[in-house]
Amino acid sequence: MKELRVSAIKDGTVIDHIPSKSTFKVVEVLNLSKLDDAVMVAQNLKSKKMKLKGIVKVAGKELTQEEVNKIALLAPTATVNIIKNYSVRKKMNLELPEMLKGIIKCANPKCITNNDMVETKFHVRSTKPLRVQCHYCERYMTENDLEIL
């Protein structure tokens, strides 16, 4: 039997097919290091779909749609499965919503969202390539400008 690189979890979330280089970014933006339950992280795994992939397994936690949206920004190829009793209970949709609320920071230092208590909002104008527009200062941002909150 093939040995599993990352052991299975009973309940929780499995984020698979992460572009290998983005694996630890996913861990960071989801604040997984703060969790008390087991978190398993692996990168540079061989994959049929992509050259190298990363995988993150989070025990005892179901990701929210807002958290999934963050992954969609960082790792659009990823798949997110909710696990119950060792089997897949739900496949989460990784499509970006039309509006991203409170997920990314505006790159414009003169935007009101960087200077007052205002939640950021971005309109997703295109996904490939990614172009988002700040709801407030109306500036466009591309993938290179993204800073996840």
Partner: peptide
């Protein structure tokens, strides 16, 4: 009128 961009929308 405000010096910060997006202030009017807020």
């Amino acid at each position: 009128r405000h010096p910060l961009e997006g202030a009017a929308r807020v």
